[in-house]
């Protein structure tokens, strides 16, 4: 029974309007280029990690390179550009992954090994010089920054920025 509640809860979370247009506290997910995922955004948000883990094992152990959910291709569409029009690395808090992960206080270590920008872009050494923190990304301060940002910004702007 508890399992049922949990699953229902997860389902509700996944489909919840918190991800939709009118939640003022949702993270501002940067706009992507290219075709949308056929699975839909809600599905990607809920399952991207499982898809990437599944496909990473297919690639690494079985050599299947044609997989769909490969981290290498994320940034073909999900590269956030800085003022100079260059893709930002994960060291920048505007980075696509960080926009949600900072908010959710979920630390990923993908980018200790994987590049966080499209192939071909010369990443500045800045990211490496940050080193590795012992603590996970500071969830509280990051979240507070988001909240403050939302409080300052008008809801229409954030809604636009989100999709």
């Amino acid at each position: 029974m508890r399992l049922v509640i949990l699953i229902t809860g997860l389902l509700l979370t996944a489909l919840s309007p918190a991800w939709g247009q009118d939640a003022a506290w949702a993270p501002a997910v940067p706009k992507a280029s290219g075709e949308p995922h056929p699975e839909g955004n809600a599905y990607m948000r809920r399952w991207h990690m499982s898809m990437m883990k599944h496909d990473r094992d297919l690639t690494m152990y079985d050599g299947e390179r044609g997989v769909n959910a490969s981290i290498g291709e994320c940034f073909e569409c999900h590269a956030v550009k800085d003022e100079a029009g260059q893709p930002v690395t994960v060291a920048d808090e505007r980075h696509f992954c960080r926009s949600c992960h900072d908010y959710a206080a979920v630390k990923v270590d993908c980018f200790d090994c994987h590049r966080s920008t499209p192939e071909g872009f010369e990443e500045p050494p800045h990211q490496a010089s940050l080193g590795r923190g012992i603590l996970p990304t500071l969830p509280y301060s990051a979240q507070m920054a988001q909240v403050l940002e939302y409080l300052r910004a008008s809801p229409t702007v954030t809604a636009e920025a989100r999709e």
């Binding site: 029974m1 049922v4 699953i7 229902t8 997860l10 389902l11 996944a14 075709e35 995922h37 056929p38 699975e39 809920r46 399952w47 499982s50 898809m51 599944h54 496909d55 297919l58 079985d62 299947e64 390179r65 044609g66 997989v67 769909n68 959910a69």
Partner: peptide
């Protein structure tokens, strides 16, 4: 105990069939 609908974890099949750019490389292993 009744079973509610579980949100389906993506199967390999889902992943293979999703995405237009995906080229099917293998029929079977």
């Amino acid at each position: 105990m009744t079973c509610t609908q579980k949100p389906a974890a993506p199967t390999r099949r889902d992943i293979l069939k999703s995405g237009a750019a995906m080229a099917t490389l293998q029929l079977a292993p």
